[in-house]
């Protein structure tokens, strides 16, 4: 039976019925069942047994086709839903990243665009003369340095005072011990 080159015409009705009985007894392998189905589809032989088995095989085939379809459909739906969710998620993430990168670039560009060497306004009037501007800048920086120097003096004086207070305290502690 496994020899496909052998035509179905060589199988007699009795042989076909014997094979059908073996099929009904579940004594055929899957391959043999498929081959028997093929033979029954292409044979004109018709007896009650052969027709019954032919019908059963057709029904079993249709059942297997219907059973596969919902499983395939549900798997496809799951895949499609997962794919849609994944693609949307990635798209949103990329959009947010691009927007943040653009914002960072804009901020850094804005900062660099307002960078200038010097700019001087006196009482609301812009000083364009370079020499005059430099003199004003020098005066302002000197004023700031004086302020820093005064602050440093205050801190130094404060530190000396604290050191003196610490010495006095230590002396007091020693005195109290006696």
């Amino acid at each position: 039976m496994n020899d496909r080159s052998n035509n179905t015409a060589t199988l007699s009705v009795k042989e076909l019925e014997e094979l059908c009985r073996l099929y009904l007894d579940c004594r055929l392998t899957r391959l043999q069942e498929r081959e028997l189905h093929y033979v029954l589809l292409h044979t004109e032989a018709s007896t009650e047994l052969i027709d019954e088995v032919r019908g059963m095989m057709d029904f079993a085939l249709r059942l297997s086709e219907v059973a596969e379809k919902p499983a395939a459909a549900s798997v496809a739906v799951r895949t499609r839903w997962w794919q849609r969710w994944s693609v949307a998620n990635i798209a949103v993430s990329l959009l947010v990243l691009v927007a943040s990168a653009a914002t960072l670039t804009y901020f850094s560009a804005s900062d660099s665009q307002t960078d200038i060497t010097y700019l001087v306004y006196v009482d609301g009037a812009k000083v364009d003369d370079r020499a005059e501007a430099e003199a004003i800048i020098r005066a302002d920086i000197d004023k700031a340095n004086e302020m820093l120097a005064r602050a440093a003096e205050v801190q130094e004086a404060q530190q000396l005072r604290m050191d003196e207070m610490q010495r006095f305290y230590d002396k007091y502690q020693k005195y109290m011990q006696y």
Partner: peptide
């Protein structure tokens, strides 16, 4: 930020070099 530049009674100085970024404002 530039909003007080050119205002009467206000003097603004900004100078930036490689090692010093100095800004001052005087309000009269």
């Amino acid at each position: 930020d530039g909003s007080y530049n050119g205002k009467k009674g206000i003097s603004v100085t900004t100078v930036k070099s490689e090692k010093n970024y100095f800004r001052s404002i005087e309000v009269r």
